[in-house]
Design a protein around this nucleic acid. Structure first.
Length: 590
RNA sequence: GGUCCGGUAGCUCAGCUGGAUAGAGCAACUGCCUUCUAAGCAGUAGGUCAAAGGUUCGAAUCCUUUCCGGAUCACCA
């Protein structure tokens, strides 16, 4: 479609420059609104001034010239007010789709394939994954798939925050309250198990603080002094001193968590080429600080702390090394970025992190640029809005966090109920039934999340179940299943003849199918899977519209039957591939 | 307070590199299963595109101001 637009634009430009004014630098064609006849529209208003001709007349003139110079492409045109609506020969569209079908490539490959790293998920090890992580994972996964689809090589990574006070809290609580219990002994999934002790810690801590306050200790001090918090801090110190017993406990509890994460990731259908662990990266970046000091990019205060002055760039002063010489988060991020570019042959690095860290990444990228890394311009923060509940943010302290596993369970359950109610799974063996419920339930959830522009925050209402009708994943899956079943009945798919007449529904569907490649490229370029998600819905809607109105297997002629079966197969391929890029599976029946 | 992001139907969202009468879905109401899967299709109703100025042939879209919501500006991560 882009290709067509470009060809026609340049032809039109030549005409305009030759016959009207060579001041004209480029012409912009836009898709014709669906209430009007035509495929592409040229707006003549800007020319009215130059030529001093009436818009209608001007449109007519240009239209005729275009028709004469491209009789094989332009079929006819009409002018309404200042809008020149150009109709392309329908055979052009059909030929294009046939080309793609026969080549087996519905998506054109990028001219410059790159190696790209996508970081996503990146959880802490003190609690299980929640709805926010789900959005993160789905976005990271889908964006990485989009890049692969257009021909890039992608490395998926996560950085796990496995060290620090948070995990020490879980460790202390486990020592105090668990009596040696383990995920195995209790049957609780490892990440939930460890998370439970984190909650226990917070509960006990809160209790101790309020007791201290009652004894007359000021709040600030009480928070510092609470015995259980002191224990956690001591634990952290021992960890930093490599105390064997502490490390052993730490390793043990983290391994429980990882086992749990792995199960959730598997359910979500996401995976990683490499995991980074903060316990191994937190010292990175410190030598860079020395380097930056020598180059005069950083400066040292009297107390020994190291800073960078970013006020000239509209930002603040930022700390890089504490006065005791230990590093902060951003120092580690600097080091990790450098390490990644050394370790992998990548040209580009994408961080999938919520928009609450917009400032952090702005600073990080700026510092790396100032340090002179050529790749600093190819860092991208895929910033997404937080998932909120109707009453505001999810808060773990108030227990309003929507747990990832619970949500997946619920989606599967709802899916099973609906499927049974419709009688869609009758006759299937038990394991296939289960698989189908999962496919549909997860499809509903994933589509629900991915159809929203990543930059926008989204509201999730746990009271209202996620829809399975209308603008949803299951709707698209259903369309796919419908087509699969239809094609199963059709003996074969054959290539339609170019001269086949197209009715309105066939024509709209055909045109929308041709937008697939451009849409995938656009979605990748904009790091925005919702672009693709919304497009797939449109395709499915147009298909259903055709399906409902015109018989396919018993079409009025063999020619029509061939055409519709062909369009059906193309739709099936686009929906199947497209949903796959969103991490959504497509059932053969439902 | 500074910076950044958002505000479109009752609800959830498209449209935002300026173009014609602002689109879907849900919820509500009408029709359509003896014919390829009704998780579907066709239709009705629902809008001061937060507000006011400006730019221009033309603004939901660009600029300015204001209002509302959120994030961020730590020797936290």
């Amino acid at each position: 479609m882009n290709e067509l637009k470009q060809t026609l634009s340049s032809i039109l430009l030549q005409i305009l420059q030759k016959d009207y004014s060579n001041e004209i630098q480029h012409v912009d064609l836009q898709p014709t609104r669906k209430d009007f006849e035509g495929d592409l529209t040229y707006t003549v208003f800007p020319l009215v001034k130059i030529t001093r001709k009436a818009p209608e007349l001007l449109g007519q003139e240009i239209g005729e010239k275009l028709l004469v110079s491209t009789p094989d492409l332009v079929e006819k045109f009409n002018v309404i007010k200042g809008f020149l609506n150009i109709s392309i020969r329908k055979s052009y569209f059909l030929t294009k789709l046939v080309e793609r079908y026969q080549s087996g490539h519905f998506i054109s490959a990028t001219a410059e394939p790159q190696h790209i790293m996508v970081e996503y998920s990146s959880p802490n090890t003190n609690k299980p994954l929640h709805l926010g992580h789900i959005r993160n994972c789905l976005l990271g996964w889908s964006v990485s798939r989009l890049y692969e689809a257009i021909g890039h090589t992608v490395y998926r990574v996560q950085i796990i925050n496995d060290r620090g006070i948070h995990i020490c809290k879980s460790m202390v609580a486990w020592q105090k309250f668990a009596n040696g219990a383990t995920p195995a002994s209790t049957g609780i999934k490892g990440d939930h198990f460890v998370g439970d002790y984190y909650v226990l810690f917070e509960k006990e801590y809160k209790q101790q603080v309020s007791e201290l306050i009652q004894q007359g200790v000021p709040e600030e001090e009480a928070k510092e002094q609470a015995p259980i918090m002191r224990e956690a801090r001591e634990m952290l110190v021992r960890w930093e001193q490599n105390d064997p017993a502490t490390l052993e406990l730490w390793n043990k509890m983290n391994s429980w968590v990882y086992e749990g994460f792995d199960r959730t990731y598997a359910r979500l259908g996401v995976s990683f080429h490499k995991n980074y662990y903060e316990s191994q990266t937190f010292l990175l970046g410190r030598d860079i600080v020395q380097h930056g000091l020598e180059k005069g990019i950083f400066y040292k205060k009297e107390d020994g702390s190291v800073w960078i002055d970013l006020t000239a760039d509209g930002l603040d002063h930022k700390l890089l090394l504490r006065r005791d010489g230990t590093s902060v988060y951003i120092t580690q991020d600097i080091g990790t970025a450098i390490a990644r570019f050394e370790e992998f042959p990548i040209q580009k690095l994408i961080y999938t992190v919520a928009n609450e860290q917009d400032y952090h990444f702005k600073v990080l990228f700026l510092i790396l640029k100032k340090l002179g890394y050529s790749w600093a311009d190819h860092l991208y923060h895929l910033s997404y809005g937080m998932v909120e509940l109707p009453h505001g943010r999810m808060k773990s302290r108030e227990g309003t966090v929507v747990d990832a596993d619970d949500l997946l369970d619920e989606m599967e359950k709802t899916s099973a109920e609906l499927t049974a109610q419709f009688g869609k799974a009758e006759g299937l063996p038990e394991d296939e039934k289960r698989q189908l419920y999962t496919t549909i339930g997860h499809g509903a959830l994933k589509y629900f999340i991915l159809k929203v522009d990543p930059r926008k925050k989204m509201i999730f209402n746990p009271e209202e179940s996620i829809d399975f009708n209308g603008h949803t994943g299951p709707f698209i899956q259903y369309t796919h299943a419908r087509i699969s079943s239809l094609l199963h009945r059709a003996e074969s798919v054959s290539i339609p003849t170019e001269s086949t007449e197209l009715n309105e529904e066939e024509y709209h569907l055909l045109k929308s199918l041709l937008l697939y490649s451009d849409t995938v490229h656009k979605a990748a370029a904009e790091y925005n899977p919702s672009e693709l998600a919304n497009y797939l819905y449109e395709v499915a809607r147009l298909y259903n519209s055709m399906y409902q109105k015109h018989s396919i297997l018993t079409a009025e002629s063999i020619e029509k039957k061939q055409l519709r079966i062909f369009l059906s197969d193309c739709t099936r391929i686009v929906l199947n591939q497209g949903l796959d890029l969103l991490g959504i599976k497509t059932p053969e029946r439902m």
